[in-house]
Design a protein around this nucleic acid. Structure first.
Lengths: 144, 144
DNA sequence: GTATTTGCAAATCATTTGCATAAAC
DNA sequence: GTTTATGCAAATGATTTGCAAATAC
């Protein structure tokens, strides 16, 4: 636990981000629960204990942390953006039926065909049915 | 030209989408101009000629067409969703500096590691600097 | 004739902004 | 002490919704 705290503090220093208690709370929450939380969920989570953050501060914190590379924003899965800590690179799977967002192992993509563009990163989003929804879909089909 | 019209009409039939003039106008616009238009841009474009569509109808049309697979929604490039016709599969490059969205040749992705999930499609979004922004970035660096 | 779709304006949801106060360096 | 971040409430932007009138099958 103090291990995690130390790593978070260090991350702020090496990323050159001013470590406010509010930002710390956001990063700690994301580091502790590897879910793909929305800003709203993070807002509620950090306001269950101290320090409290306003919604605007949660958004500000997420932006700073994302900009510094400590957090990753996943924009393409539904309405609200989702965030996760950027510890090891991975892609995402979004279930068309229940909206679940799951991690998928990183895939190297051959970056020919990219011309003079300077690629900073890339993101693969798979879409379809998650295991649970695929199963209940199959069962519904059999029932007919 | 009548070629395109015929193809569009046929697309409605084979996709099983009720072909209203408003939907037709949306699909025709997207098919004619291979840009990644936002709903707002499409709304303005179709309202320059007949048939007029309300904003709600443009959104409805885009949803039906996307659902039917005739149009693809690109969600992860800025605030507003962008749309293109789904004629040949491709990925996207988003410029972090100017926001341009460019097409990138399709890449096959090895779909191991996807477990029991049923993948319907996937989408690779590359991010970085487009050729023009990369160039002016380089020039700005030299000037210092 | 029945099921869908359209148009409008109002509603909603996610996110941003402006500005005074407070905290970090 | 100066710069940067916070909190609040109001503003904005994108998209959706409810419902009556119109259109497609």
């Amino acid at each position: 636990m103090s291990n995690l705290n130390a790593r978070i503090s260090e991350a702020f220093v090496t990323a050159g981000v001013r470590p406010t208690p509010q930002r710390y709370a956001v990063l700690e929450f994301l580091a502790r629960r590897p879910v793909h939380a929305t800003a709203e969920e993070i807002f509620h989570a950090v306001n269950r204990k101290d320090p409290r953050s306003s919604r605007a501060t949660v958004y500000n914190s997420l932006r700073s942390l994302t900009h510094a590379g400590l957090v990753r924003e996943i924009a393409s899965c539904g309405k609200a953006a989702r965030f996760d800590t950027n510890l090891c690179p991975h892609h995402h799977f979004v279930c068309d039926s229940c909206g679940a967002v799951e991690d998928i192992a990183w895939v190297e993509i051959p970056q020919s065909a990219l011309g003079g563009r300077m690629v900073r990163n890339y993101d693969v989003v798979f879409r379809g049915l998650c295991e649970r929804c695929a199963r209940s879909d199959r069962e519904a089909g059999e029932r007919q």
